[in-house]
Design a protein around this nucleic acid. Structure first.
Length: 506
RNA sequence: GGCCCCAUCGUCUAGUGGCCUAGGACGCCGCCCUCUCAAGGCGGUAACACGGGUUCAAAUCCCGUUGGGGCUACCA
């Protein structure tokens, strides 16, 4: 039998990391079994659902690389795939349950039920629908409905153990009397989650229901529905919740949680998926955690998924993403980085081939240090936006300058640099050895001041890589020209003189 | 309140009664490399929530306690 799984989000907001992990586990399971992955939109909550969210949701999912075989946009044999387009199916099945007296009309008002609930809560009883309308004779109920009385349809729950096997949690059960008579059809004719879900899963021939842990208690109700409708139970697998770093439920205050935010920050979809897969599951081979979606689907094992909730860890996500970024290689990363640099106004909207080639060198110099593509901005700021005033005001830079001989190195470096027409890498190296000879400084005491002279910072990419970038960059047609070596040293020295003049005792 | 679920290093996890003086990964710390910060390499720190059982033997099985999560909707 073909494995059929589904991801069934509600279009009530952005796609969330928790949802994406659920989608991923479904996808992984489908792919490793040559199965079908269905995307179903659960939009029966009319007040919260928006078609705008449906679009965003699919966009996020497409970006992630999880592709679906059936769904609202791609169609399929078991459509429609949007629940609001399936209301007739729910009504049909509801009619069946009604005629078999497995369900009944309930005429209690929302207010009355709320009152009942409060009263039960107040006396310490479990709040459940009393079943008041259960005993209204079906004929009388039908007549009342025909007369236009507002009514919902409720399921008759039963006594006795309700149980099912869960691939992740094992055998799960609850006493039937714990389950109240839940609503199958609302007064407006739409179906709430539990009923719509079961009808759809049956009709869409879903073999494995893989969803969030929060649905375990819904599953008991759904088992009742499968029984009443006379359908065979699918396999169930429930996934634990993703928690924030502090162990509470993941939310906005833990940082980004919606997928579009991760995309904007420059996380690679494959890396996000890789990390999410690791949240609740471990690859069989220890120490081999960086995996592509294809490798994941080959090694993934649903029955080995962890039951306990997992905390979302940014440090590890960053590491996973960095690893994927390195795998990607410089040319592709350059393409990804361009939009971020354009946003800063550093790169023209349509960079020339010459600029792109130079950019390749820029990316080459920094790409090992990027956790996410977005980081390219702060890593390359010293190239595109040279600001000695700001740089020299940094206490750490000032401390480096206060080292014995530091200023002398900069002056000497400045003088030597001025003597050369072109400053390619070889010339630069020659200049450095001259400075070394004249000042007697070496190692850190030599290079630290030179770094400050060139970047007004004490840390950054290798100077040897930076020199050609500065020199070649100055000839490029960029929105703001790249300051070449001479200009940089001159500017730093000017600021330095101002700075020294203002230092009492100097 | 009731019901259900969960509990191994700071975090993600391996572990399915002896292979566990508990393994790996991220982080952290140290060393090496090095012009800097990183990156990279090497090494180190660090956990079976607690209390009872069962057993020759328990991280692994059972019970309880504590702590977390979920459900208890005409939300999903």
């Amino acid at each position: 039998m073909t494995v059929r799984v589904r991801f069934a989000p509600s279009p009530t907001g952005h796609l969330h990391v928790g949802n994406l992990r659920t989608a991923l586990y479904n996808w992984l399971f489908a792919r490793q079994n040559q199965g079908i992955f269905v995307l179903r939109i659960e939009d029966t909550d009319l007040t919260r659902s928006h078609s705008r969210f449906e679009e965003e949701l699919m966009e996020d999912l497409r970006w992630s690389g999880l592709d679906w075989d059936e769904g609202v946009d791609v169609g399929g044999e078991h459509g429609p795939y949007r629940q609001t387009n399936r209301l007739n199916l729910y009504q049909e099945h509801c009619k069946q349950l009604l005629s078999e007296e497995k369900a009944y009309h309930c005429f209690c008002s929302v207010e009355a039920i709320e009152q009942e609930r409060q009263a039960q809560l107040a006396t310490g009883q479990p709040p459940r629908y009393s079943g008041k309308c259960r005993d209204i004779p079906p004929q009388e109920a039908s007549q009342r409905v025909r007369d236009g009385k507002a009514a919902v349809v409720r399921m008759k729950s039963r006594q006795g153990i309700v149980t099912f096997q869960d691939i992740v949690f094992g055998s799960l059960e609850v006493e039937g009397s714990e389950i109240g008579d839940f609503v199958l059809l609302r007064s407006d004719g739409t179906a709430p989650y539990n009923f719509a879900c079961v009808v759809d899963d049956v009709l869409m021939k879903i073999t494995h229901v893989i969803r969030g842990e929060g649905h375990i208690s819904n599953t008991y109700r759904q088992v009742l529905l499968y029984e009443a409708l006379g359908f065979q139970l699918p396999h169930f697998a429930h996934l634990s919740t993703i928690l924030g770093r502090d162990g509470t439920k993941l939310s906005k205050r833990h940082g980004a949680t919606s997928i579009d935010e991760f995309r904007r920050q420059g996380f690679l979809p494959g890396a996000l998926l890789n990390y999410l897969a690791l949240l609740g599951w471990a690859p069989p081979q220890e120490g081999r955690e960086i995996l592509t979606p294809e490798q994941l689907s080959a090694e993934f094992d649903l029955s080995r998924v962890n039951r306990s909730p997992a905390a979302f860890d940014w440090d590890k996500l960053n590491w996973v993403n960095r690893s994927h970024l390195k795998e990607l290689g410089q040319p592709l990363l350059t393409e990804l980085a361009i939009p971020y640099l354009q946003d800063c106004g550093w790169i023209p909207p349509e960079p020339s081939a010459e600029i792109k080639e130079w950019l390749g060198d820029v990316i080459q110099a920094v790409f090992k240090y990027l956790d996410k593509v977005e980081d390219v901005v702060q890593e390359t700021e010293l190239i595109f936006s040279f600001d000695p005033g700001k740089g020299l005001s940094d206490p750490a830079v000032q401390e480096a300058l206060s080292e014995n001989g530091a200023v002398e190195v900069i002056r000497e470096f400045h003088d030597r640099v001025q003597r050369h027409q072109i400053l390619d890498l070889e010339t630069y190296k020659g200049v450095v050895s001259e400075v070394k000879e004249r000042t007697g400084q070496k190692g850190k005491n030599l290079f630290h001041p030179i770094r400050v002279a060139l970047t007004a910072r004490i840390s950054g990419p290798e100077l040897n890589q930076l020199i050609p970038i500065f020199e070649e960059g100055q000839h490029l047609d960029l929105p703001a020209p790249i300051t070449p070596v001479k200009g940089r040293v001159q500017a730093v020295l000017d600021h330095l003189h101002d700075y020294l003049r203002n230092q009492p005792g100097n």
